[in-house]
Nucleic acid binder design. Structure first.
Length: 636
RNA sequence: UGGGGAUUGGUGUAACGGUAGCACGACUGACUCUGACUCAGUUAGUCAAGGUUCAAAUCCUUGAUCCCCAGCCA
């Protein structure tokens, strides 16, 4: 390709690749990087590069779902884009709800999803590592003591009910009779709380902020509650546990997180997040002056010659940024309700292929890269938007179309007998596994189509809906007297049907044209154009086909926003979200392994399910192919 | 009734005082040995009303609608 110098330089071939505009978080990151706000990486391959440290902080009290996928992709994507690090951090501060089972599942899910970025939290250039809030319990306790000493916190002996009663309202301030007790007294009680002297619920450590604040989060929030619970990580070492607001900023600080990204409902918590970090900085400075350097910045300082934290202080103070959740239509995405669906057996488990959990969609056959693509596609904003689920399905189709080998299987079989086929004869025909990639073809990189052999005989199965005795207008499929192509095989024409007592078609009798072998009619002897046919059907040879179970999924809910109308999502459950059929599949598929995904031509994408056993395969329909004909039929 | 957010075609998202653009969908058509894929075209929008300005999606005022907040959950 030669470029003529006279031509404008914006021809498609040399135009700059179309770049997506930066989302608002990327804009913040780039401004921070340009201003040197967070300093640079001190060592490692990114040495000298502006520091970008993100994290995904799940609570291990449930399974990850599509909503979490957006957060993971955002945080991992940022780390990757700016040469930074991504941490997986378990926010395990409430042992009453958390379990090891969830920790293991979440690690596995994050690994799976981030494989779409070519890495994970513990592998690849952006691996920041695995962390637990519970590893920081000691530091959190030290900081809490420092806050008490500096008059920023006190032990409150009000019961939960009393606190609620005294919470006040927008115009009436809250109250606590313990607010002004001396620090020495709080210190003593807090120590007792820690040592297990006091019962659950008998007292809390509260921050001394503003009982009259219109933001209720600032009305002296609880830092610690007493919980005599066994913790999956720390066992029985603690019986007081930090609350989210107290714990989270410290976790971010200890990991030198630069951008602490969370969802919109935490916007009201940001003043508290920042208040705590300033209070800790105050306390640490005071301690430093006293010469008691136990609280010294240590690992939490940025160090080196770079700037020091957002507030110009000693202890790292991350920046909280909020974005809108991922909310697909026809889907429920709250851990509480998903748990209920599992417990009340509306689904078979957390990994039911109809579930919007990462495990569910993975089992169904959604590729991680498709999820990444959707997240990229919908963008990141503070607008609470609703995403059409079909966008996810389209992203899945887009990936699978490029990656899934083709096969032919018949979901709802009806027998076809080729009357003029030589009795007992079996012919092996070429079947194209992967069509040429038309995208690649444009770039001149078309990979030649690969083929394998499939058996053809005089008795076949085709799809019931591919035959009608009388073809309506625009029906291109098989009908009496109407000729169609059997994919990669022959043209056939239906002659007659056999019906059972109740009028159901049990057999179609047809004839084939031997001259159309491979699926094309020859040109006429005098160069006349070859005979064309409008329809092409998928098929399997009856004596070779293998029986298999195929699970067809529909959406779990009938309405775009489950529960919107009545307040109860159970009212909107789709009773027909699962259909199981006995299909006739290509014998070649019996060698497929769990997780393998195929396109069953003209039907959709299908993944071999974990329930498969030798000789009894089970396929999940991941998603159908788009179907213009069904759309037309639906309209009329 | 207090505080915090948000509002651009059907949906998602750009435009940061200077031509309202992109993607998805939908619709037409082309192509096709998958009614798929691909390709071409069409469609349709600044929450409302005032104001500032040569010029407003963008700035100001007033209002509307939606979301979040009074857990010892995260």
């Amino acid at each position: 390709m030669s470029n003529t110098p006279h031509e404008p330089t914006n021809s498609p071939s040399d135009a700059a690749p179309e770049v997506r505009p930066l989302n608002f978080i990327e804009q913040i990151v780039e401004q921070d990087n340009a201003g040197g706000k967070w300093g640079v990486w001190a060592d490692g391959p990114a040495k000298g590069l502006a520091k970008v440290q993100t994290r995904f902080p799940p609570e291990p009290n449930g399974y990850l779902h599509l909503g979490h996928a957006k957060s993971i992709c955002l945080n991992y994507g940022l780390a990757q884009k700016y040469g930074g690090k991504f941490n997986l951090r378990f926010d395990d501060t409430n042992p009453a709800k958390e379990e090891q089972e969830y920790v293991d599942a979440i690690k596995d899910d994050v690994r799976w999803l981030t494989s779409a970025f070519g890495g994970s939290f513990d592998s690849g250039p952006n691996a920041g590592g695995l962390y637990f809030a519970s590893d920081y319990f000691g530091k959190m306790y030290e900081y809490a003591v420092a806050l008490i000493k500096t008059g920023h916190a006190y032990v409150c002996e009000l019961s939960a009910e009393e606190v609620a009663k005294r919470r006040g309202n927008p115009s009436v301030p809250a109250t606590s009779p313990f607010r002004d007790r001396p620090a020495s007294e709080s210190l003593k009680l807090f120590d007792e709380m820690r040592r297990g002297v006091h019962a659950d619920g008998s007292m809390t450590l509260r921050a001394k902020i503003d009982l009259a604040s219109p933001n209720f989060n600032l009305r002296d929030p609880v830092l610690y509650r007493i919980l005599h619970e066994h913790h999956h990580n720390t066992g029985d070492a603690w019986c007081i546990y930090a609350m989210y607001d107290w714990a989270h900023g410290i976790e971010d600080s200890l990991e030198n997180v630069t951008h602490s990204i969370c969802t919109l409902e935490f916007e009201n918590h940001k003043p508290l997040y920042d208040w705590f970090m300033r209070a800790i900085n105050d306390a640490v400075e005071v301690e430093g002056k006293r010469g008691a350097s136990k609280l010294g910045a240590g690992s939490t300082s940025i160090g080196g010659s770079g700037p020091v934290g957002t507030e110009g202080r000693v202890v790292w103070h991350s920046q909280q940024i909020e974005f809108a959740k991922f909310k697909p239509t026809y889907t429920l995405l709250s851990k509480r309700n998903l748990l209920k669906m599992v417990q009340e057996k509306f689904v078979s488990g957390w990994d039911d292929p109809r579930m919007p959990t990462l495990r569910g969609v993975r089992r169904r056959g959604y590729p991680a890269s498709a999820l990444r693509a959707v997240c990229e596609d919908v963008g990141v904003t503070k607008v609470e938007s609703v995403i059409d689920v079909t966008r996810i399905e389209n992203a899945v189709r887009d990936v699978l179309n490029r990656t899934a080998p083709r096969a032919m299987s018949v979901l709802r079989p009806v027998k076809v007998v080729i009357e003029n086929w030589p009795a007992g004869h079996v012919e092996m025909l070429d079947f194209v596994i992967m069509p040429e990639d038309s995208n690649a073809a444009e770039g001149g990189n078309a990979k030649p189509a690969q083929t394998r052999k499939i058996p053809f005989s005089g008795t076949l199965f085709i799809e019931q809906e591919d035959f009608m005795e009388v073809a309506p207008k625009k029906y291109f499929r098989l009908a009496i007297g109407q000729e169609v192509r059997l994919r990669w095989a022959y043209f056939i024409k239906a002659i007659s049907v056999v019906k059972d007592a109740s009028g159901n078609i049990t057999q179609i009798n047809a004839t084939y044209d031997p001259a159309t072998k491979g699926g094309d009619a020859p040109a006429g002897p005098n160069g006349e154009p070859a005979r064309k046919v409008k329809g092409t059907l998928h098929w399997v040879s009856a004596e070779h086909a293998v029986d298999a179970e195929v699970r067809l999924f529909d959406r779990l809910f009938k309405t775009e926003e489950p529960g919107k109308a009545t307040g109860e999502w159970k009212d909107d459950l789709n009773p027909n979200s699962l259909e199981v059929v006995r299909a006739k599949i290509d014998p070649h598929l019996t060698s497929a392994k769990v997780g393998d995904t195929f396109q069953f031509e003209r039907l959709g994408y299908f993944r071999v399910d974990e329930d498969s056993k030798p000789g009894a395969m089970v396929f999940n329909r991941t998603v159908t192919l788009k179907d213009d004909w069904a759309k037309q039929v639906g309209k009329s």
